[in-house]
Amino acid sequence: MFLPKYPDSPTPPPAHTHTPTDPAPTRRSLPPVVIDKNTVAVVLVGGVVLTALLAAVAVTAISVAMAAVVLRSMLRDHNRR
Rank of each mutant, 00 (worst) to 15 (best):
A15H: 02
D8M: 13
H78D: 03
A52H: 04
R27L: 02
R28S: 08
A65Y: 06
L75M: 03
A56G: 14
V42S: 04
L44D: 11
T19F: 06
V64R: 07
N38Y: 05
R81V: 14
P12M: 14
A67W: 04
S9N: 15
V70C: 11
L54G: 14
S63G: 03
N38F: 09
V57K: 09
A68V: 01
L53N: 05
A68H: 11
T51E: 02
A61S: 14
M66R: 05
T11A: 10
V43Y: 11
V57Y: 01
R27Y: 02
R27Q: 04
G46L: 07
G46F: 00
T19K: 13
A68Y: 08
M66C: 14
P7G: 01
N38W: 08
M74E: 12
A24C: 02
A15L: 12
Y6R: 15
R76N: 08
P23S: 10
R72G: 11
P13Y: 10
V70S: 11
P13T: 12
V70H: 09
P20V: 06
M1C: 14
I62Y: 00
P25F: 01
V70F: 08
V59P: 00
P7V: 00
D36M: 00
T60Y: 06
H18T: 13
L71C: 07
V59N: 02
K37S: 12
K37N: 09
T19I: 11
A68F: 05
A56Q: 07
P32H: 04
L75S: 02
D77W: 06
V57N: 04
L44P: 00
P7D: 01
T60H: 08
A58E: 06
V40T: 15
T26S: 02
P4H: 09
N79L: 06
F2G: 00
A67C: 10
N38R: 14
L54W: 13
T51A: 14
P25Q: 07
V42L: 05
V34T: 08
V34W: 02
A58F: 06
L75H: 04
S73E: 12
A58W: 08
R28G: 06
A41R: 07
P10K: 14
L71D: 05
V42F: 00
T21I: 06
P7R: 00
L53R: 05
V64M: 12
L30Q: 09
T51Q: 08
A55L: 13
L53M: 15
D36N: 09
T11E: 13
K5T: 14
P25K: 01
V69W: 09
T60F: 11
A67L: 15
